[in-house]
Design a protein around this nucleic acid. Structure first.
Lengths: 218, 218
DNA sequence: ACAAAAGTGTTGAGAGTACACCCATGC
DNA sequence: GCATGGGTGTACTCTCAACACTTTTGT
């Protein structure tokens, strides 16, 4: 028996926070179709790899980072979404700490850059649709889980978490209520040390457990 | 340039409520692999159809129903999940009103039956994993959206909604609190008419708007 | 009259929100 | 001493959970 064979890609919306902005990593396509357009990093799924592995591979190829938050989002398979034929894309999103990233140009891309999600260029394929889905999911995850902590360094101040939330939701939060909420989660521990800054130094905290065990708890 | 081609199927977990039980439709496989095993209805995605269309087609082939709640869940692509080779499955779930369904045997299946989710047979492939994911999502959707209304006939009593929730969550709810909650949503309208039963007849209600516009509001 | 399910209100606990002042440090 | 962010408590509102008795109908 013969079945229709088609191609499947994995595309990853890689988010980070930099310069008080939520940014996503885009690559400039080197190949047709959409040569010269910006697109989400991604590639074809190989025969001997799981979907998550393919996403991890793409993520590592583009950013050099491992062990970050990675989540499958949704699959896109509209007829005509890719001029090469029937190509289905399984979209993922990843959250990385900017300091750990080392963006590389690859063979598929002549350039790779972080773009603020509020100032995106025209994107290849239906990647605008994928990205707006990813943003929706990202905000949802921030609201109901502790993924935000995956964007922080090991030791962090409460105001840093708050800044991340304010950037993602694009609005301010009351600092007393915010601290109350975070501390009531009971997932962070005082690190005692304080940061060397030119004002009252903040208490630093670290996660009590590995981020993987924490995310689901809210 | 040549890319790996592979097969993609769409499998649908079709849920209904019948005999005070949450049930899922399974088909008995007629073909290898897993001949004789029960499986979720599904099939290969065709070249000229969107993923949602493929899911709708499978749903209609098996049940004869159209225009029901249908949602993409997740994609499964573990190496080795299908002995025929690399086959990726995009899982959907559907909610149907039992009275509207007309289950048919198809060429792929020697039999099709509703199984209570609490008493499932051994399933083909990784369909047990898919189904447990679907159940998780189903309960989540019940908690945060109004999908439950898609399981009801046009006119319904509040106690019928409550029964559906009690079946899905497998626990009882307080009748006063439940009615208060439902009425406060402001999405149903009194129909005036009452049902002919051998006790005090309940007020019947109908949705103020089409179900599609209502689901997202909670 | 009895069986069966329908209908209906109040109270307490906890979560979220609004709001303003003093503190510790570097310069 | 001044600028800069850090740290902290109270009062109000709203939502959720617990809880029991009367009503309407068919038989």
């Amino acid at each position: 028996m013969k079945y229709t064979k088609l191609s499947v890609t994995v595309d990853v919306a890689i988010f980070t926070i930099q310069d008080n902005d939520l940014k996503v990593l885009l690559i400039k396509r080197n190949l047709e179709p959409f040569r010269g357009f910006w697109a989400l990093p991604g590639g074809f799924v190989r025969d001997k790899e799981n979907l998550d592995e393919a996403a991890k591979r793409e993520l590592e190829e583009e950013t050099g980072v491992k062990n970050v938050y990675l989540e499958q989002l949704y699959s896109f398979g509209e007829v005509g979404r890719d001029p090469r034929g029937k190509i289905i894309t399984i979209a993922y999103m990843a959250l990385v700490n900017y300091d750990r990233v080392n963006v590389k140009a690859t063979t598929d891309a002549s350039d790779a850059q972080w773009f603020p999600v509020s100032k995106l260029p025209k994107l290849a394929f239906d990647h605008d649709k994928i990205l707006s889905y990813a943003l929706k999911r990202l905000r949802w995850k921030f609201e109901y889980t502790a993924v935000a902590f995956s964007l922080l360094p090991r030791k962090f101040a409460i105001s840093e978490i708050q800044r991340i939330y304010e950037i993602v939701f694009n609005k301010g939060f009351d600092k007393r209520n915010f601290a109350k909420k975070i501390l009531s989660l009971n997932i962070i521990r005082e690190e005692g040390v304080k940061r060397d800054v030119s004002h009252r130094p903040p208490m630093l905290y670290s996660l009590k457990k590995d981020i993987g065990q924490i995310i689901e708890i809210l």
